[in-house]
Design a protein around this nucleic acid. Structure first.
Length: 255
DNA sequence: ATGGTGGTCCAACCA
């Protein structure tokens, strides 16, 4: 089972690229973030023609998540129980007996800002949600745009970046607490090239300088981590004309 | 610290 995540920064713009990538990479599951369109604008037909089922939880202009899969998804959840949030950032579903939790974690703007406090509260709610999910599902994969670089290897210039947003101690502690529930970063189960990133700022020629961060993560429960056979970043779509600022991250499982 | 680029949508916000 090949599972991938991609923050597409508007599916209105990037649908042709997503279809192109589905055709060449042929994942069983692809989760998308920042589709930036209402659920009713989501083009299920385009994915049907490509041989995929699809499902979205969208909103206008901002956020929005979707899941595209070879076999249909069920048991769909679009938020954390008891955590009221108009922002569409969560899409959990079960596909081929695997629980797939697609996340678009808040960016947080700046350490100490109102958006930063929202991010930390959101991560606390995520922790509670995943605690319950892990009790219910042995085979669990939590993936998406985490907007957190787990450690210094995941940052192009950790000294320059310092404790700024996406790297602050409180964000990393929140991620660690979530992983301590029994979820591991499958990318680090394998040898990886140094300076492998999943996001590069559009500004200041980030991609050309490889000035990036690895903030798109695939976390797996113990049984899924044990069956993971590969995980890698596919940089190619970031080289395309008018790209997203993120590129797909992939994990393969032998179930 | 600022500004650089890009998406949404036309002023300003978000990343």
């Amino acid at each position: 089972m090949k599972i991938a995540t991609w923050n597409v920064n508007s599916l209105n713009v990037r649908l042709p690229q997503v279809l192109e990538w589905l055709g060449s990479a042929v994942p069983d599951v692809l989760v998308l973030q920042e589709i930036k369109q209402l659920t009713e604008k989501f083009d299920n037909d385009a994915f049907t023609e490509a041989g995929y089922k699809s499902l979205a939880s969208g909103q206008k202009t901002y956020n929005g998540v979707a899941v595209v899969s070879k076999t249909p998804a069920d048991g769909v959840v679009t938020g954390f129980p008891g955590f009221d949030d108009p922002q569409r950032r969560v899409l959990a579903s079960t596909i081929d007996t695997v629980r797939i939790v697609n996340l678009y974690v808040p960016n947080g703007n700046n350490v100490g800002s109102e958006k930063y406090e929202y991010k930390l509260g959101w991560l606390e709610a995520l922790h509670g949600f995943l605690q319950v999910e892990l009790k219910q599902y042995d085979k669990l994969v939590v993936l998406g745009d985490f907007n957190i670089a787990p450690d210094d290897r995941d940052v192009y210039d950790p000294v320059k970046w310092g404790d700024d947003i996406l790297c602050s101690p409180a964000e990393r502690a929140a991620l660690r607490k979530i992983m301590d529930l029994g979820l591991s970063d499958v990318f680090r189960q394998f040898d990886q090239p140094e300076a492998t990133f999943s996001w590069w700022d559009y500004r200041a020629a980030g991609f050309r300088r490889n000035a990036g961060l690895r903030i798109d993560l695939i976390l797996a429960s113990e049984s899924m981590a044990n069956s993971c056979t590969a995980s890698y970043v596919d940089r190619e779509p970031r080289t395309w004309e008018r790209p997203s600022d993120h590129t797909p991250v992939v994990a393969e499982f032998d179930l």
